[in-house]
């Protein structure tokens, strides 16, 4: 199967590969897996406690090129966004950006799940209710 140029680019030059300190209160960690292919993806975010802006994001993914590209793109996209904004990123946007074929849609789903899981972890650590907008004012 031919990968799109964008997938190849992210695969060959993945952005933000690495690890953030899991025990830090400012860091949220999402670990998700796709049963279809055995992929496992870890995405971490570092959130500024004052502004709730995601200042840094790192990932490590074991899986196919599309899974790596999806998570690489996800880290690029969440950086600089507020937590509330990052929650609105959808897998269909990732599919569009990377021109993923239908058989690789689950990779983008995985990346979205990873973002949500990382934010969920951060919220839990900081006692922010799940469905509640993370920051009053940022939700509108």
């Amino acid at each position: 199967m031919a990968y799109s140029d964008k997938v190849v680019d992210h695969y060959e030059n993945p952005r933000n590969v690495g690890t953030l300190d899991k025990s830090s209160a400012e860091v949220g960690t999402g670990l998700v897996g796709a049963p279809e292919c055995g992929d496992v993806m870890r995405l971490q975010i570092k959130v500024n406690p004052e502004t709730q802006v995601i200042e840094d994001a790192k990932f490590k993914t074991f899986g196919c090129g599309s899974a790596i590209a999806s998570s690489s793109l996800a880290t690029e996209w969440v950086k600089g966004k507020t937590v509330a904004e990052a929650l609105s990123i959808s897998n269909t946007e990732i599919v569009k950006e990377l021109a993923l074929p239908p058989v690789k849609i689950h990779c983008s789903v995985l990346a979205e799940d990873a973002i949500r899981a990382a934010i969920g972890d951060w919220k839990k650590k900081n006692n922010v209710a799940e469905a509640e907008p993370a920051l009053a004012g940022a939700s509108a």
Binding site: L31, V32, E36, G38, V40, R42, N91, D113, A117, G120
Partner: peptide
């Protein structure tokens, strides 16, 4: 099912319930 569950989670502003249990994911990683 997986795609739909993700869509529901986004709409509800909740975290998706992962099919693969967390401890298994840790081990897999």
């Amino acid at each position: 099912q997986s795609v739909k569950a993700t869509e529901r989670a986004r709409a509800a502003g909740e975290q998706k319930k992962q099919i693969v249990p967390p401890d298994l994911l840790e081990e897999a990683f």
